[in-house]
Computed example of a mutant assay.
Amino acid sequence: MADEIETMSFEQAIAELEKVVNQLDRGDVPLEESIRLYERGAALKARCETKLKEAEEKVEQITLDADGRPVGTRPADP
C-alpha cells in the first residue's frame, strides 16, 4: 500500500484522500476498517504534503526579468 501511495501524483493522492474522508464521514464503516482507512488517509496526506513542498521548491527557483516574466531557474539552495 505504501509503495502505491509513494508513486501517486498529487492529483491522484488528493482524490483518494477525499474518498477516504468521505467513507470515514459516513460513519458506517466497522472499527477495524476505520482504523485501516485512517492510516491510509494519513499516508495520503503525507504524500500530498510532499508533492506540494516539491512544487513550492520548484516555484521558488524561477527567476524573473525586470518586467516580472519568468526567464529561467536558479540552482536550489543547499
Rank of each mutant, 00 (worst) to 15 (best):
R69N: 15
A46V: 02
I14E: 14
E60A: 13
K58S: 06
E11S: 11
G72C: 02
F10C: 06
E49H: 05
M8F: 11
E11H: 12
E6K: 12
E4V: 13
E49M: 08
E39S: 10
V29D: 00
E60K: 14
Y38M: 12
R69V: 09
A76F: 08
E60C: 06
K58A: 08
I35L: 10
G68E: 02
V29R: 08
A15Q: 14
V29F: 02
A2F: 06
A2M: 09
A66E: 14
T73P: 01
K45M: 11
E49L: 10
E60P: 00
E39Y: 13
G68T: 03
L37Q: 05
V20W: 00
I14C: 07
E39W: 09
P78C: 04
L52S: 10
T7H: 11
Q12T: 10
E16T: 06
V59E: 09
V29P: 01
T7I: 10
N22R: 14
R74T: 11
S34Q: 15
R36G: 06
G27K: 04
Q23G: 00
K45F: 07
P78M: 13
A42G: 07
R36H: 12
A43G: 01
S9I: 02
V59S: 03
S9V: 02
E33H: 10
Q12M: 13
L44S: 00
T63N: 04
R74I: 09
I62D: 03
D65R: 00
E18V: 12
D65W: 01
D3G: 12
E33A: 11
E11T: 10
R36A: 15
L17R: 12
A76E: 12
E39R: 15
D67T: 09
A15P: 00
A13L: 05
E33N: 09
A2T: 12
R74W: 04
N22C: 07
E49D: 15
L64S: 04
E60T: 08
T50D: 12
P30F: 05
D25G: 07
V29H: 03
D28G: 13
L24A: 04
E39Q: 15
E6N: 14
D28R: 05
V29E: 06
L37S: 03
D25K: 15
A15R: 12
R47T: 01
C48N: 07
M8P: 03
L64I: 03
T50H: 09
L64M: 12
V21M: 08
L24G: 03
G27R: 07
L64R: 11
R69I: 07
D3Y: 06
A15W: 11
G68Y: 01
D77Y: 10
A42R: 15
R47V: 00
L52N: 11
R40S: 01
V20R: 01
L44A: 00
A15T: 11
Q12Y: 08
A13M: 04
C48H: 04
P30S: 07
V20H: 04
R74D: 07
A55D: 02
E39I: 08
C48W: 03
L37F: 03
T7A: 13
L17E: 05
V21Y: 08
E4L: 13
P30M: 02
S34F: 06
E18T: 15
Q61I: 03
L44R: 02
R69W: 08
E32Q: 14
L24T: 04
Q61H: 05
I62C: 01
S34N: 12
D65V: 01
S9C: 06
V21D: 07
D28H: 06
